[in-house]
Amino acid sequence: MSQADLAVVETAAVRPNPLWSLGLLRSELVTTFRRWRTLVLLGVLAAVPILVGVSVRIETRGGGQAGRGGGEGPAFIAEVTNNGLFLVFTALAATLPFFLPMAVGVVAGDAVAGEADAGTLRYLLVAPAGRTRLLLAKYATTMAFCLVATLVVAASALAVGALLFPLGDLTTISGTRISFADGLGRALLIALVVAVSLAGIAALGLFVSTLTNSGIAAMATTVGLLITVQILDQIPQLHALQPYFFSHYWLSFADLMRDPVYWDDLVKNLELQALYTAVFGSAAWARFTTRDITA
């Protein structure tokens, strides 16, 4: 390669075409959502509301009521028989502690380490997009997966709820009544809040993914961290630390079903997710832009 050629490559690497990042993002999205693994994960997530809905339906066929005996089980399950829309909230409350973040952990952990594992990472970097842009595209793809996964759960729950149970005006947990359209709006808002709640673990997974060349190791570490934090969040002696765990305010989305909405914990959740994204996003950037890519 002559000097002139090298100079061309250099400038291209320094100042890439802005369209490059969009193209990169599109190709990342297509690759991620075309993977069998991703589709299977989404299928499993869609199956959870079906499972919950059918079991509540079977249990209450004799005219009984779900959640009798002190309201055990995920939040809102007692209301599901009377209004199918509550299945959306129940399904999100059931999947948010484990299924959803696990799926996100798999996708985020695989993002960089998976490419390194398959030996495709250096080919991605040959394209003059720059490492920072590649990382941003990876994070944006992971967040898109968070949103799609949450919406898949919500949509599947809504469909199952509409099929098995009546729909109509609903009673908020504060005892006031809101119209079905209002309830649907709140359901959408809740799905968005749940998707954003996963931003923290997505950034954490991406950081772990930049540390290793083994996709499996990154996924296992991310999911392991998730389980560890969930367990630590249950230990009363650690209550001083718990407000800083990324999963601590996850179930605060239920506060959107109060009337008026109780914002305190919701805001804390969003702040916490922003903090985790900033810390682990920049850590991932520091690691990924300085490491030697050998695979």
């Binding site: 959640g67 005996g69 309201g71 007692a78 209301e79 504060s174 005892g175």
Partner: peptide, 15 residues
């Protein structure tokens, strides 16, 4: 909830 002559207690957990 106390409204006029009615007093309602509503437990949303057990409905």
């Amino acid at each position: 909830i106390h409204n006029g002559t009615d007093v309602w207690g509503y437990d949303s957990k057990s409905n």
